[in-house]
């Protein structure tokens, strides 16, 4: 039972990180109508710069802003340099150009920082364990990720639902042309939204560093999971992305932890050993297929006019 709670926390932590990635993707798609395969590269840049700065300065307080700033700067540069030319193109052009960017960035980090994976360390003040539930200590670092992630989600909600700029973002998402005609500066809006997405991806990446290894191509697998999240949640919807991210994080973690013992109840042990991990690795895609079969637009499609 205690282990189940710990796994539930792990699922929440994974879900929160997926949300940070999915939020940027879904915003960029909802407002600019752009498929961005290079979003994983921003995650990777955040992770690399943070890990390298921490190694060089031994200061996590310097490493965090460095990682965020690097992801933000990279995002703004590719938005102005490349994405502006892609907004009017079809999806095929967008997929290919951002795929090219991904290939480029994956090798660029190898050129700058070498091909070996970096094992980023947890900062000292977060290295221990915290006892939230008696008898089940939980790593402080993972708890910090949950807290930061939920705080960012709340902040994002406040910005989009309660501020003037959030109103312009929502207006841009429902009708770009009309928002532009009413005086919103669409060019600036695009850059701001893209930069916001880059910042969130960078944050996810730098927090992921000490949990996974920091390596070239690290953003690719989480990018595809983030795609699954926004497809389930309904592309363009932040609320859908949040709910779907937590659900996917939870289902994936639980599947990996409990499917093998569950199958063991009614299958011979060798069959369970084979089927458990196999089904666990496919679980969220099966969920996605099921959701899409009944609701092709996702669970919470944004209202478009």
């Amino acid at each position: 039972m205690l282990l189940l709670l710990v796994q539930a926390f792990n699922g929440l932590q994974f879900g929160v990180m997926l949300f940070l990635m999915a939020a940027g993707l879904t915003l960029v798609f909802g407002i600019m109508n752009v498929v961005n395969l290079a979003h994983g590269s921003l995650y990777m840049v955040g992770a690399y710069v943070c890990a390298e700065t921490y190694v060089a300065t031994h200061s996590f307080l310097l490493a965090i802003p460095a990682g965020l700033l690097a992801a933000l700067a990279t995002g703004v540069i590719i938005e102005i340099g490349i994405f502006r030319a892609l907004y009017t193109r079809d999806h095929l052009d967008q997929v290919l150009a951002t795929f090219g960017l991904t290939l480029m960035f994956n090798d660029l980090v190898r050129i700058i920082w070498g091909s070996d994976a970096i094992y980023a360390t947890v900062p000292k003040f977060l290295a221990g364990q915290v006892v939230i539930i008696p008898g089940a200590p939980y790593p402080a670092y993972r708890l910090a990720i949950i807290v930061v992630g939920l705080a960012v989600a709340a902040l994002l909600y406040l910005i989009i639902a309660r501020t003037r700029y959030g109103m312009i973002i929502r207006a841009g998402a429902s009708n770009r042309v009309m928002a532009g005609a009413l005086g919103a500066n669409i060019v600036v809006l695009y850059t701001v939204v893209f930069a916001l997405g880059a910042l969130l991806a960078g944050l996810a990446g730098l927090m992921a560093g000490p949990i996974f290894t920091v390596a070239s191509g690290m953003g690719d697998s989480i990018l595809i999971l983030a795609f699954v999240v926004i497809v389930i949640g309904g592309i363009g919807s932040i609320r859908g992305a949040f709910i779907a991210a937590l659900a996917v994080g939870f289902i994936d973690t639980m599947g990996r932890a409990y499917l093998r013992p569950l199958f063991g109840l009614f299958l011979p042990s060798t069959a369970a050993d084979n089927a458990g991990p196999a089904v666990a690795s496919m679980l969220i895609y099966i969920v996605m297929a099921a959701v899409l079969f009944f609701r092709p637009q996702g669970l919470f499609p944004p209202r478009m006019r």
């Binding site: 960017l101 480029m104 050129i111």
Partner: peptide, 8 residues
């Protein structure tokens, strides 16, 4: 790296 640049 070079393929990416060529593709873009």
């Amino acid at each position: 790296f070079f393929l990416g640049i060529i593709l873009v």
